[in-house]
Amino acid sequence: MLTRKRQRWAYLYILPFFASFLAFSVYPIFYSFYLSFTEYDPLSLATRWVGAANYIRMFTSRYFWDSVGHTLVIWLFSIIPQLTIAMLLSLILNERWVKGKTALRSIYYFPNLVTPITIGLLFNMLFSYPGGTINNILTALHLFPHPVEFKNAPVLAMLVGGIAICWQYFGYNIIFISAGLNAINQDVYEAAEMDGANAWQRTAHITLPLIRPIMIYVMVTSVIGGLQIFDIPKMLFRDGVANSTRTMVLYMYESAFERWQFGFGAALAYGIFLVIAVFSALSLFVTTRIGSKNAKEGKTA
């Protein structure tokens, strides 16, 4: 009897969270879904039902698919060096002989505290043409005879976007990977050492397989976060050639908040959700598959 009474109170305690969750998360999700089938005038608040027109427009828009492609390329340019650097530094920081680990981790994490707008502006200045810092270095070292116009070369513009995002997030990933490394029981390494395993073998056959769950988490969250990139490309090279730095979310932002096409913007939000869901599932599948394969091979060996 007392327990049942207590349970009722428990519902009351969790009510504030669920009330705000319903009002600020669930309701907007359903409302934006409804909005995606309408044309909406934000000043008169009038809506007009247009059926699937916004979705048809989205799926037939070359510019939407271009933005999907640009997002993926920028994400790839960022995630590959990001995880590589994070993994290498985490492994180094995990070694006993490294001094000042906490300070170094804090320094690496620092770019993550800088706002994306600031990073966008910073990299814009670094890579500006013709007198940006990078161009000055390249020409001073005679690596290039003329300054490089990063903005006007689609691949370079996307590469700069990737570098900026990598710079912001590699320290963030170090935190996760380091946590994964710390969780590995030292007895396993000691046993391997006694069996004569060298450093590379310990890393390849113990460390990497054991931090696989962390890597899957980092990979999936980076897909979800990385495909939503917006602020840095927005500030970096506005109107880059061939709209090369226009990402999916930036395309949605321009449609909804610059041209006030909120119905279309809502449809784009669902399109982006689909793209992210597909790539998240794909990355989960691939990383799990690779892990299982390695595990099987290990067992067989």
Binding site: M125, S128, Y129, P130, G131, K151
Partner: peptide
Amino acid sequence: DLGGWSGEWAT
């Protein structure tokens, strides 16, 4: 060939 409103342009 300096971007309008860029730092290099103003300088």
